[in-house]
Design a protein around this nucleic acid. Structure first.
Lengths: 333, 333
DNA sequence: TCGATTCATGTAAGCGCTTACGGAGGAAGG
DNA sequence: CCTTCCTCCGTAAGCGCTTACATGAATCGA
């Protein structure tokens, strides 16, 4: 166990603890010779600076915080994973805080991570409504949001246009000749929920269709299943010939319900999701969806944070594109 | 921002900082009256003790560490999520360290978390080969492993018998009349990989079958896809009529490949997975698998850790059962 | 009434670092 | 040869807590 402190190193190297600290932190005012002796002593003793003691004086620990709406959600985790990798590359730890998709919890998360004096935080998705409050809690801790922009630009963001994805879907379905397109939205506590719905509505209007088949649920498997059951309860005449789910998880669960009800996908109903999680491609039928490039977003967010932590200026927002991936669940019927 | 320190509280309450500390930590030797004044001052000032300063003196921070083989793996994350919830209930943060399924990385994880002086750590799966080394790095930090036992019982464990699950699968497939059962194993760096294979071999032997169709890969989607492609390359005569994958992810990816090759599931080939991740139930066909009760395991592990952190005696290992969930991918054909 | 306890509280030290400050040499300048 | 200025380094203080110890007041029995 690293019970060896900076004092031990100092003794071993025959210098004072202050010098050790300077040497290790690359401060000036240490002769090359001394520096070398310190480095050697460190190696000999296997000394590792205590992150928490260091955190106390520096008011910042070598840990990043990630605020995530759902720790078990296959959409968010690849992003978090990317961030964790970058963090570890910097020798940083990663703290996860699961908000359970509650906007209020995100503020708590901010406060919590702030008192831990993390070096930086990445907020995944969620709502922008409370960004000011979060910024207040985070008081000066470098923070970036991913998957959305922040309210009033308080935080730099790596984002994409959720509405554009919806538009691509509607146009695709339209081109396929689908006439009655239903939308199953996620919770509107989040930007994703609101914007994907908005995009759907606008695209429907623009293509001269009425967006009257709109349901809401949670972004989860259960949410998708429940909404689909509800949809199936409609009188046959009002049944859609295409369902656009606001997330892949919802779509996948929905397809299962549809099949159980004897509805064929894509013949009777085309199905489209949003997010392109790994399971979308291997579902049966493979799920048409809006690809979001999660890994890229994670890496970009981490990189932005890296810059900010490094003391750089506030970076500009980065927009990434979305892309419609057409698969079997909406193949031409 | 919580820039208010214990000194501020002391001043506000008109007592000394030592008294504030004692009052806040429930130490004896504080009059009820004083205690009340302190509590009031805390509330008035919105004081929150600095976890990191506290960590420095106590040599233990209010954070738990989780060592996880894959942060984006839908099998592990529900467990981690359960732990995170318990942790937060205790006011603790959660640090995740992704080993990428490398046993060596798990030791690094231990060292890393140890220097952060986490209050406790949960190791998910992995190998038990390096448990001694990990214990050494963790020097006294309460630790429990989940999903396997630890070598020589160095850590308390919440485990199940991987081999029993395999046996259930083999017997099930056998009862279905399948004659040529193939096994697609996960990486044998982990206990899960080794034991599931062993269980398969033994069950095959006990039922008088030869276990000659055995492939290995990674536990991931890609691993399952690759192994399946390999399997399909076999001459038709050697083709299995059932494939038992060591994980659900592998099985799901495998089913996709099978379908693409025109192999019908379950008619031509029955497919079974292991783990019962959320997507298993909604796949098409729904996947027969070995249920492992991930949430329960997460909660139990967290609870054990809670006990240990509370200073209790080393808890006994807890074994949880596994259960075969029969679904469409192996329905009687 | 008086020492012996007991209880509540204040103070100092220390956890393992960082960093401002100041002192000791040595090099440069006159 | 003496001042001035660097360079390199040691020391002290402080980050925000906990806790051992010291102090003083209150309580008790005799």
């Amino acid at each position: 166990m690293s019970t060896v402190s900076i004092y031990d190193v100092a003794r071993e190297a025959g210098v004072s603890y202050g010098t050790v600290s300077r040497a290790l932190n690359g401060r000036s005012g240490v002769s090359p010779h001394t520096r070398r002796r310190v480095v050697e002593a460190v190696a000999r003793l296997g000394y590792v600076p205590s992150p928490i003691a260091r955190g106390l004086t520096r008011r910042s620990t070598i840990a990043f915080g990630i605020v995530v709406p759902g720790m078990a959600d296959p959409f968010f985790m690849p992003i978090a994973q990317g961030i964790e990798q970058v963090a570890r590359g910097m020798g940083h730890a990663t703290m996860l805080y699961d908000t359970g998709r509650s906007a209020a919890a995100a503020v708590e998360a901010a406060a919590f991570l702030a008192q831990f004096r993390v070096a930086g935080v990445v907020v995944l998705g969620g709502s922008n409504r409370l960004d000011d409050e979060m910024a207040e809690k985070l008081a000066g801790i470098p923070t970036v949001v991913a998957l959305r922009r922040s309210r009033g630009g308080v935080f730099p963001a790596v984002f994409f246009d959720h509405a554009v994805g919806s538009r691509l879907v509607v146009e695709h379905l339209r081109a396929l000749g689908r006439r009655r397109i239903a939308f199953v939205g996620g919770d509107e506590e989040s930007v994703a929920g609101v914007e994907r719905l908005r995009g759907f509505r606008e695209a429907m209007r623009d293509t001269g269709q009425s967006a009257d088949l709109v349901l809401r649920g949670a972004f989860t498997l259960d949410g998708g299943a429940a909404a689909t059951v509800e949809m199936l309860a409609q009188p046959a005449g009002r049944r859609p010939d295409a369902i656009f789910y606001a997330s892949d998880a919802m779509a996948l669960a929905g397809m299962r319900r549809l099949r159980e009800a004897g509805v064929r996908v894509p013949d009777d109903v085309a199905v489209v999701g949003y997010g392109d999680i790994a399971f979308a491609a291997i579902a049966e039928p493979p799920l048409t969806t809006v690809r979001v490039h999660q890994e890229q977003i994670g890496l970009l967010a981490a990189r932005l944070l890296e810059q900010m932590v490094g003391g750089g200026p506030r970076p500009a927002d980065i927009e990434v594109g979305v892309e419609l991936i057409v698969r079997g669940s909406s193949a031409a019927s």
